[in-house]
């Protein structure tokens, strides 16, 4: 199975993307999309992409759903916060700055997901990741309580990402 179809989830999502873009469920497009996805999956293998066999798909999916819900809430909340900063008076006391966070996350896919989350929430942006020291540097627009930001990244995101990816 693994040799015949190297990345089953990638294959499935590419086929779904093909059907989505063509807005159809017809058998012809289904076969064509599946064929394209198959070829792309084999091409993707040449990139030596990271792959791990992970156990317990349902438990991990449940964690992922909870993480997604929390991220959605955080996106709305941080959008409101940044809007307040942008529209508010300019002279308000606010410190923007860099924040170093030690993280134990190692899996490349997990780190990529964390990057997506951090970038998707306005007010935090990914500045640097030092793989040797396992230090993640974020730039934060409203850096009043450093401990609170570290808690958000570590407890809300990192702990769940480790459950999902490791």
């Amino acid at each position: 199975m693994r040799r015949w179809l190297p990345f089953p989830w990638l294959w499935l999502s590419l086929t779904a993307l093909w059907l989505l873009l063509n807005q159809t469920m017809s058998v012809g497009h289904l076969l064509l999309g599946a064929l394209f996805a198959f070829v792309i999956c084999h091409g993707y293998r040449l990139l030596e992409a990271p792959r791990a066999t992970r156990r317990g798909p349902w438990r991990r999916a449940a964690v992922a759903v909870r993480l997604l819900a929390d991220v959605a809430i955080d996106i709305v909340r941080s959008n409101a916060a940044v809007a307040r900063i942008v529209l508010g008076p300019g002279a308000r006391a606010r410190t923007a700055g860099f924040l170093d966070i030690p993280i134990e996350l190692r899996d490349p896919l997990a780190l990529a997901t964390l990057a997506c989350i951090v970038t998707a929430t306005p007010g935090t942006s990914w500045a640097r990741y030092d793989a040797e020291g396992s230090i993640l540097t974020l730039h934060i627009l409203d850096l009043i309580d450093e401990a609170a930001w570290i808690r958000i990244v570590k407890d809300r995101y990192e702990a769940r990402l480790r459950k999902i990816f490791e």
């Binding site: 998707a120 942006s125 627009l141």
Partner: peptide, 11 residues
């Protein structure tokens, strides 16, 4: 300024 455009590109 990096933080501002993310509002448009996400929510």
């Amino acid at each position: 300024r990096v933080h501002a455009p993310t509002m448009g590109s996400t929510l």
